[in-house]
Write a protein that binds this DNA or RNA. Structure first.
Lengths: 182, 182
DNA sequence: GTCTATAATTTGATAGAC
DNA sequence: GTCTATCAAATTATAGAC
């Protein structure tokens, strides 16, 4: 009998949550298996190695992240605003840091495929943010510098605000970062 | 025969390096033991549990970090400038992120004593930075907001720049962050 | 696709000799 | 203080039944 929801998606959900809470080295196949009530051998059927699972988690995370930023919605009608809103959502709704923030911190100890996927997330954010800032009137050089600064503020802001258990700290950091864009 | 250098310090050195590269869950007592050529049982003599070791690593790191910021030196003659310089040193000389940056990212999966020590590092930086910004002429509220923003920019900047293997990205982030203080 | 079973290794930690 | 030896549990991963 098939599961009520796709097993592969459930695995990715559980793995993403575990990584965002404890890091790549902070979860095991058995943790994920217990989370979704299967045996760890079943996880290996879908993702042969832990590196495969890690890379798949990032790929899906990145795809969803940028799709939500692109599509827009009630979170705001500008690309940069929606990019920021995804980080706010991570802290306030998920109560977690960004997947690629924690993986970026651990990057030197990650399997190559996982490290590359995390790098790509940062690179894509840098490029797309800068593009949008150029449209907003900044020079390409200024836009790149501001894009980098915003990414750093948001990633660092999530980590610091969650460490201090102080969501208002994140809002304060965002306010300063966005002020800098005008 | 005693070792040529204090064993306890060598353990802390190796553990700090391992944590800053792979995270708290990314090293084992045997890793540390191999690094300094002793057996893992010897590590347990100095630090009974992994949590004890983790907390001791942070305490020493924080003590040295703020002592170097306080004492000054050729890195600059203002407190804020020297605070920033410690992060630059982490990236360029150590080629690592900040110990408390990576631990902050993992904080929800850490032993309580380790999590508390990491929190204290952020709290102390926030307070001391804000004090110095008030002396520089900012209102207490603005100083706190700017202190938080600088910490986030530096922690996020280290993670992003190292993930992208792009030290210039860190310098760009720092330039924008310090511009915002004037 | 999921299971049982298990291999091979690693983990944090302890007991006790020196 | 450091060692040998060991433990119980956990780890990633595989083989093969259903």
């Amino acid at each position: 009998m098939p599961r009520k929801t796709d097993a592969r998606s459930e695995i990715l959900d559980a793995a993403e949550r575990r990584i965002r809470l404890n890091g790549y080295n902070g979860f095991s196949f058995r943790d994920i298996a217990a989370d979704i009530d299967v045996k760890s051998a079943s996880i290996h059927y879908h993702f042969p190695t832990k590196g495969d699972l890690g890379a798949a988690v990032i790929d899906r995370y990145s795809e969803i992240f940028f799709r939500l930023v692109e599509e827009g919605g009630k979170a705001g009608n500008d690309w940069v605003g929606r990019y920021v809103a995804r980080f706010r959502h991570a802290l306030l709704k998920d109560r977690m840091v960004c997947l690629c923030g924690i993986l970026g911190a651990e990057i030197s100890g990650l399997p190559v495929a996982v490290a590359d996927a995390a790098r790509t997330f940062f690179l894509k954010g840098r490029l797309r943010l800068a593009e949008n800032l150029v449209v907003g009137g900044l020079s390409p050089a200024d836009a790149d510098a501001r894009a980098l600064s915003l990414i750093a503020a948001l990633q660092g802001g999530l980590i610091v605000a969650r460490s201090l258990d102080d969501p208002a700290a994140f809002e304060s950091i965002v306010r300063v970062a966005l002020d800098g864009l005008n």
